[in-house]
Simulated scan of single mutants.
Amino acid sequence: MQQADNLGAIPGIDHGFCTINDPMRPDDVFFCKQVHSASVIEWQPGQVANTLEADGVFTHEHQPIAVITADCLPILIAAKNAEKVAAVHGGWKGLQGGIVANAIQRFVDEGITVDQLQVAIGPSIKPCCYEVSEAFVAQFPMDQKHLWQHTQPAPLLAPQIAPPHARQVGSAWFDLSGYGVMLLLAAGVKRAQIEVSKVCTYCSSPSFASYRRRTHHPEEPKTLIYSWVARKA
């Protein structure tokens, strides 16, 4: 299991980025039925995991909450006073739809100012391995063109699995983590409040799930990353 230093430094908060069979994963963790939306719900007693359509969950209770990913951004948010936490699934559609701003607004609506938050973006696919089409980047405004490049960048960490070769003509390599950080900054979060894992789900670790890698290597078993956060009882 991996953890973020900034969330780990908050007394009263527990969290982790782990595989489905990690013994540190809470047994009763709640997660939504993720549909790449911008919807963030509040956990309520009696809700059944994987039944409510949303891509973020927020709580002030002690119920562990999570998002499930296999390349997308897992974004965990906690108030510095440990009173409220949120888990957000950041696929590009949800990010483009405004899920980051919606999640931050949940805290603001509860009286927690943006400067009182800590945010951790967990393992996700990095630009070294996230090849996208010309049509994909055409959906983004030109003032966001810093998010992609046409030359495949080097991995941030020494790869344990070979990064993919380009499979499309005229494609680009997209920085999904950078997109998440950009949206957090736009929502008023300072860069110093954000920790971003350098782990690429495609090339850094064979134990972490990568949907893209499994499409290239279909013999791999299907697995998922559980990114969870909880207020300690």
Rank of each mutant, 00 (worst) to 15 (best):
N21D: 11
D22Q: 11
P23R: 14
M24K: 02
P26Y: 07
D27S: 08
D27G: 06
F30E: 02
F30L: 03
F31S: 07
C32Q: 05
K33P: 15
Q34N: 04
A38Y: 01
A38I: 00
S39E: 14
S39A: 13
V40Q: 12
V40W: 10
P45F: 12
P45I: 15
G46C: 04
G46H: 12
Q47P: 13
Q47K: 12
V48H: 14
V48W: 14
A49F: 01
A49V: 00
E53G: 02
G56S: 06
G56E: 09
V57L: 06
V57N: 06
F58C: 08
F58V: 12
T59Y: 03
T59P: 05
H62Y: 06
Q63L: 07
Q63I: 01
P64G: 06
P64Q: 11
I65K: 06
I65M: 11
I65F: 14
V67N: 08
T69L: 02
A70G: 09
L73P: 00
I77N: 03
A79W: 14
A79P: 08
N81Y: 02
E83H: 13
V88N: 06
H89V: 01
G91L: 01
G91R: 00
G91W: 07
G91A: 04
K93H: 14
K93Q: 15
G94F: 00
G94W: 01
G94S: 09
G97A: 15
I99H: 06
I99D: 10
V100F: 14
V100I: 11
V100R: 12
A103E: 12
A103D: 09
R106P: 00
V108D: 14
V108S: 14
V108R: 13
I112L: 13
T113Q: 06
V114H: 08
D115C: 05
Q116G: 05
Q118N: 07
Q118D: 04
V119F: 00
A120C: 09
A120I: 04
P123M: 00
S124F: 13
S124G: 04
I125Q: 01
K126L: 10
P127I: 01
P127E: 01
V132Q: 08
E134C: 05
A135S: 10
A135P: 02
F136I: 10
V137D: 11
V137T: 04
A138Q: 12
M142Y: 06
H146S: 13
H146L: 10
H146Y: 08
L147K: 00
L147A: 03
L147D: 13
W148D: 09
Q149E: 12
T151S: 13
P153T: 05
A154V: 06
L156E: 04
L156Q: 07
A158P: 08
A158T: 10
Q160G: 05
A162N: 15
A162G: 11
P163I: 12
P164I: 04
P164F: 11
H165L: 15
A166G: 15
Q168F: 15
Q168L: 14
